[in-house]
């Protein structure tokens, strides 16, 4: 049964995984929450990031440069989905699925085979599971810097236009915003972050694998939802909200470590994740339904109702 010592030993690793994959979850937040777009490209672009970084590092390129290249590759993947959706008129979910499928072949082309290893003994990797505490610190530095950049960007005129696109397309267009470009910017940015996360995660694990992105979108959604459920009422500030997504991702990996300790097989994890996310997604729907059939008695009037 539950082995507390083994669980505690596994926890630092979960935190590191959660922080590094938390960057991917921030990317998912951008599309899912800011842009209101369920982007399934993630499963493909995470691996693209890992593949690009690992292959470049193997060629002797500086790992930080490799991270930048991975970010750029992810942006391209996001652009592809945006192109499918806006120029070709393909519904959002389907556009993401098409990119994801296409990216499988591209990722295989990049790697040449389904798994490529980079050893931390041979290369000067940015993070590695061999050194967990530095990995957590480096991951957190990345998270803080990225959140800072996103906070700045979404506060600019262009960022504001992207947010308006996600919130109300009608309003955005009536105010002269090209909503197609707004969506593409969001998708490009999001998948850039996802690929960057994949690049870090691959270095952490010491390899890029063709299947590393499978189910990533579900992990991302789980992180967004866990972060929102736990901190949504406390964190009003946008930067803190993004940070709560990363905490959500850490919690996700901690829970995974726990259920593994409880004896769940690794191949059962995906089912477990899917069900968890399904339940969390259902909660707001169910509570809305409950509120609709059980209306609370509210007093009308007061300043907020004036002018109604």
């Amino acid at each position: 049964m539950l082995n507390i010592v083994a669980l505690l030993n596994a926890l630092p690793g979960s935190v590191a995984q959660g922080v590094l994959m938390g960057i991917m979850a921030i990317g998912v937040y951008i599309t899912y929450k800011v842009l209101d777009f369920a982007d399934l490209t993630v499963d493909g672009s995470l691996c693209t990031g890992g593949a690009v970084a690992v292959m470049l590092i193997m060629k002797g390129i500086n790992p930080y440069v490799a991270l930048l290249a991975a970010f750029a590759a992810g942006m391209l993947a996001g652009f592809l989905t945006g192109f499918f959706h806006t120029v070709m008129g393909i519904p959002g979910i389907l556009a993401g699925i098409l990119s994801q499928l296409g990216l499988y072949s591209i990722n295989m082309r990049i790697m040449g085979k389904s798994n490529q290893a980079v050893s931390v003994d041979k290369y000067d990797l940015v993070v590695s599971l061999r050194y967990i505490t530095p990995a957590i610190v480096v991951g957190l530095i990345f998270v803080v810097v990225l959140i800072g950049i996103l906070y700045w960007f979404l506060g600019t005129e262009i960022g504001s236009a992207v947010r308006a696109t996600g919130c109300n397309e009608n309003m955005a267009r009536a105010q002269g915003i090209n909503t197609n470009i707004g969506k593409i910017i969001g998708l490009v940015l999001s998948n850039g972050l996802v690929a960057l996360s994949g690049a870090l995660y691959a270095q952490y694990n010491g390899n890029a694998d063709i299947n590393m992105g499978r189910g990533a979108i579900v992990i991302g959604l789980a992180s967004v939802i866990i972060g929102e459920v736990l901190f949504g009422k406390i964190f009003r500030n946008f930067a803190l909200r993004l940070f709560s997504v990363v905490i959500g991702c850490v919690i996700y990996f901690a829970v995974i470590a726990l259920v593994l300790q409880l004896g769940l097989s690794t191949t059962d994890l995906k089912l477990f994740s899917a069900l968890i996310v399904a339940v969390f997604l259902a909660i707001p729907y169910w509570s809305g339904k409950y509120k609709a059939t059980h209306p609370a008695k509210v007093k009308k009037g007061g300043k907020t109702d004036a002018g109604n």
Binding site: S160, R163, C167, N168, M171, A174
Partner: peptide, 8 residues
Amino acid sequence: MMGTSADM
């Protein structure tokens, strides 16, 4: 609802 962005 159409003329404004509710979340902003």
